[in-house]
Design a protein around this nucleic acid. Structure first.
Lengths: 352, 352
DNA sequence: CTGTTAGCGCTTTCAC
DNA sequence: GTGAAAGCGCTAACAG
């Protein structure tokens, strides 16, 4: 396998200089005599020239590459975001490195470092690490960050927040307004700010409407996920539902912290012969693609994943391309997606 | 924002040469006097040195980067594969570019070119393009390819096949052995070799067991997907099931070309009040994560996605690291995952 | 318009 | 063991 032709080879063949070759091949508007231009193009074509972008990169210090760090691409929420990111990145001439942190701070750090070494100038991150020293240092060194999902306080970066608390509130309120009074919560452990906010939203709604809770209605997983374990959230949902169902005073509705977990909840409910929503209503959170595929279709809170990805990427690239200088904070608003897993008691005969 | 320190700066501060600095910082076993080594390390630490890999890359012509081209990361089958790829890439010091082709040959070509320009030396591809000229040319130029899913005949690359025909056969045979005689097929259009093979496997099994088919039982989508449309496969399943159900002589089992489509099938069946599997059994293909989350859990054919990704990546990197020279062809074998969406007639009272 | 030239940050002979 | 120096492929002053 012989060496690839370079602009030097082309210059020689076309009887001109590398500078001129570079000028026509890189297609910046620099004026070059048309005949020469054509000749160079022809020669390039002949020798099957493909530019080596690394050369340019070293010179211009612009890698046209961004990185994305997320817990796991296998989670549909993140894969939608990733698609959004990649779609706009491509359309703007960028490539994107995908990095799965598996929720490991060590892995996250490793990626941060190696991506920076590869001259990635922008990063979109759902950070898990509590320690933002390295991140801060890299930002000082010129790295641009857009944080989403898990948002990083006090860091010099753009942020895309989602109003988790309001989401939790709206979900619960929706159940209340549908006539439910006994509303359970099933949640993953509150180890992340987003989850805590959802939980607070739930409590806040109950409080505001003067509703009480039985201790047994609040089922929060105690151990953190084994993130490498397949279907961990689903299994969590099953397990917590079993616990919930051991209680004596059962709720008429369950609000679940995310759709994946909700699938587990519904699965267990059905397995125990409990009708959804006739006997127990289920409300999810996220609105992943599958939520409308199951039976009954899941009523849930919409987090605009794909759009969020597009937004994040556009924000980042605007910063890199220096269309924007200022960091921005955006708060995305939740929206209720009303499907069939929640019973509207006032519409029903079951009113009690 | 001032310039980052380079090995030149370190050399100056440590009273030595860039050569020596490079030698200690790149950690190849080159002998350097311990005190000098320590001093250089110390200085590097002090100035917060982070290497610029681009420099090395230009010199060594080794980008430690691979690319992955798939239709859409949003499809759980591909996202599992991607996770597998990325997990081994990381562990072997590589980064990976994710590229969604959206099943567009143009996009695929564009990625092929731009990735090569970025000096990506290896690619894992589920190719959609019928035209393999560009791909061939790049391989000639030294690009290493591992093709999977949609396999590329007559191309100088490693391949990971999956025995789709056998999968189709096994699925159908499983239904037959469970006592079904009237077996329908619901499939996406046969525009891809893999789908065609599954279809052939289906026909082959029917044939071998001397079973006939009603025309109405074979429902194959005519239009190609709108790949950008959310849930297109799911909708396809619904639509084709509606068509199927218009027939007069209904089947007792449906074999569906993939799990996503099967979800649509099940959804429509349930909506029409048809019990699964009591009235109609459903058999899927792929075994994506969600297959076991729905009710009833889907009986399906396992395609080992995550493992496939790991395998593909290891094969590719072995080639790049010149542990392997030869291309290899691997044929992954299907496996039946027996869950609850298929009725075993001989075990049941419904025998007719 | 065009060519000369000096690097971008790093590795790697080659000579000492 | 160590350093000088020559690039890797490209771009961008600068001079003409």
């Amino acid at each position: 396998m012989k060496k690839h032709p370079t602009i030097y080879d082309i210059a020689k063949k076309a009887d001109t200089s590398t500078a001129t070759v570079s000028r026509v091949l890189s297609n910046n508007g620099y004026p070059v005599r048309p005949e020469l231009r054509d000749k160079i193009r022809k020669v390039a074509e002949e020798v099957n020239y493909i530019p080596n972008v690394i050369g340019r990169q070293l010179k211009t210090n612009n890698s046209m590459t961004i990185g994305v760090i997320i817990p796991s691409i296998t989670n549909p929420f993140y894969s939608s975001i990733m698609l959004g990111i990649e779609d706009v990145a491509r359309s703007r001439g960028y490539h994107v490195f995908l990095c799965n942190s598996h929720r490991s701070p060590q892995l996250e750090e490793e990626y941060l470092k190696t991506l920076f070494e590869k001259q990635v100038k922008g990063l979109i991150v759902s950070s898990i690490s509590p320690d933002k020293k390295l991140l801060g240092a890299l930002i000082d060194k010129g790295l641009n960050i857009v944080a989403f999902d898990q948002t990083i306080d006090g860091l010099d970066s753009s942020q895309i927040h989602f109003d988790y608390q309001k989401g939790g509130f709206m979900a619960t309120e929706h159940l209340i307004k549908s006539g439910h009074q006994k509303i359970a919560l099933i949640s993953a452990p509150l180890t992340r700010p987003s989850r805590k906010s959802v939980y607070e939203g739930y409590l806040h709604a109950l409080n505001q409407y003067g509703l009480g809770v039985d201790k047994s209605w609040i089922q929060i997983a105690s151990r953190e996920y084994e993130e490498f374990e397949r279907n961990y959230e689903f299994k969590n949902g099953i397990e917590l539902t079993q616990n919930l169902l051991k209680g004596t005073d059962l709720p008429t509705a369950i609000f679940v912290c995310n759709d994946m977990t909700a699938f587990g909840v519904m699965n267990e409910l059905i397995k125990q012969g409990i009708k959804i929503p006739e006997q127990i209503s289920v409300m999810g959170f996220d609105n992943i693609e599958f939520s409308e595929m199951i039976t009954p279709p899941l009523t849930t809170i919409q987090q605009p994943d794909y759009e969020m990805g597009k937004l994040a990427c556009n924000m980042l690239l605007d910063q890199l391309d220096e269309k924007t200088v200022e960091n921005v904070d955006i708060m995305l608003q939740p929206r209720i997606v009303d499907r069939s897993s929640v019973l509207h008691l006032e519409d029903s005969l079951l009113n009690r």
